[in-house]
Nucleic acid binder design. Structure first.
Lengths: 153, 153
DNA sequence: TATTGTTATACTCTATAACTATA
DNA sequence: TATAGTTATAGAGTATAACAATA
């Protein structure tokens, strides 16, 4: 292991999809809760940003408006979100998480985190710290810089 | 950052989907090549395992046989894979990557890796080594143990 | 009877195009 | 005219159920 960018890229390409699959499978397996990853992320975003507009959710998720609209339809259909008009600008929509949504979200988050934490409990604390450090690095590389482009209006 | 399993789990849940989104977007953006992540993974597996059966691909991908069958249909439809009968056991199928498939695969792999490598070139070699180490850890936790179950026949 | 694979059906994710309503 | 959102349509990923062919 020489630490070249190409080597690291190759590893990411191999490992990230596999870990992602685990996360997806675990979320889907939580019987009766059954959130997909996009559903979870949308719900979590609206939970953190009460009254968020559809566009805000779409921006956050990196999806188009129609895709986001349908995703939200499903969450509303399952009684996890509500959609109201925004009286200030009636083109806009105000999304909120229902009580049921909050419950499901917290169970799902806890369930998936517990599952991952259990797997991560098998390695040493030092190794976990290294993983944390690397996640911070990846966050810096893949998430933070994009925010610069996203400062809209 | 205390290095608890819960903390590490929370970070994974936040960062992995975001990195995955980048990988997906980059693969799709390679005009004319246009492989999705599952398509890429299936193609890469058959490339490494010439004559693989459908079940072998399904096992590797963690998908059901019908899902894998459809995925393979699409790759065959695009002339990236071929499907032949296995004369030894005529229930089985022998999958192979076409020349076009090999070309697409190598371009797609190179393109996506180059993209990731470029992002990863912005951090120090030490940081990259830490990322590599963490990927090895995650591979150990999330991938290796499952292989034990997979030693078929 | 068990294994390999396909077909039928259905739901979700995602996009582009076309549209409505509001500003 | 520009913006926020929805609806229509379509392709891809995924599952379960039902089936056919082979061992």
């Amino acid at each position: 292991m020489y630490g070249t960018p190409q080597e690291a890229a190759s590893e990411l390409l191999d490992v990230i999809p596999a870990v992602m699959k685990e996360i997806r499978a675990e979320m889907r397996s939580q019987s009766s809760l059954e959130l997909t990853v996009p559903q979870f992320r949308a719900l979590a975003y609206v939970d953190r940003n009460r009254g968020a507009s559809l566009s805000a959710v779409a921006d956050h998720m990196g999806l188009t408006l129609p895709s986001t609209s349908r995703l939200v339809d499903i969450l509303i259909g399952r009684n996890l979100l509500t959609r109201e008009d925004n009286p200030v600008d009636r083109r806009r929509v105000k999304l909120s998480v229902t009580n049921r949504g909050k419950t499901i979200l917290s169970f799902s988050r806890r369930g998936t985190q517990d599952y991952l934490a259990n797997k991560l409990s098998k390695i040493s604390e030092d190794e976990r710290k290294a993983v944390l450090q690397s996640m911070a690095t990846l966050r810096y590389i893949f998430i933070t810089p994009q925010k610069v482009t996203t400062e809209a209006k």
